[in-house]
Amino acid sequence: MEANGFDPRLTQVLTQLEAIAGQMDRLVEQQKKQQELIDDLLLPVSKEVMASATARLDALEKKGYFAFGRELVKIGSRIVETYSTEDVRQLGEAVTSILDTVRALTQPEVLSVAGEMSGVLAQADTTKPLGLVGMVRATRDGDVQRGMAVMMELLKRVGKGAGALADKQGRSGTQKEKLAAALGPRKKNLGIERPAPKQLPAPACAAPAKPAPATTVIDGISFTADGHLADSAQWTKTLAETLSATQGVTLTDAHWVVIDFARKDFAETKASPNIRRITQGAGVSTKDLYSLFPKAPGRTIAKIAGLPKPAGCL
């Protein structure tokens, strides 16, 4: 080595370089191989995989999985929007009881009863209508009796549950109030109470007075056969004074209150007011009315006020 005049360290470097070159070659070779591998093997494989995956996804899409999934996501977001975490927590607490209920409902016995019931409903078109007597007769059947007992028990539970719910929602009250709330406004008690009508209703049994034929004409004013003014438009206050004299009545302010009311009421209802209507409308007692117009007050008032004879019994 020395004779060649080369530095031995240089030789070392060369050797190492050679070794490195060899490694490089191998590396390159490997690289090539890898590239080839990728080219020859991986790419087609991955293409294959991708294609097949795509095809599968496509199939799933066709089957509607994704639409379903999208809807699920929508539902999820809707749930999140609608319910608070508190609600969800409560749901979690209730899960056991829900499951219990479901388990109880799916017991074979219960299911068979439900099946029976739906069977009955399916045959509903063949069942005969049942009247009151038929119902009473049906209660003699032992099964019907048991069924009724079960229904009663069911009703009781439902009622209890409803009551508890009402309490929970702060609508608690007396039994009566609860009932009233459930049934809606009750009809007023039938009976003796006679609510004072704020506004006078239409006359009790007054038929529209038939215009009696005018028979007598005095000073251009026509009167009917029973002594009433034929046309109430011909009435004047002066005429009232004259008419009252023929009835043996001297008009005072108290009389005028009554007469004015009678005129006003006639104008509104087109019927002569009877005594009851006058006492209610003019605020005069029956007793006072009889002392103001002692003889047949109803008719006398109508005569003086220039109105037809009052109809009706009161």
Binding site: I275, Y290, K295, A296, R299, C313, L314
Partner: peptide, 8 residues
Amino acid sequence: ANAARQAD
């Protein structure tokens, strides 16, 4: 009775 009174 009432009708009688009303008819004097």
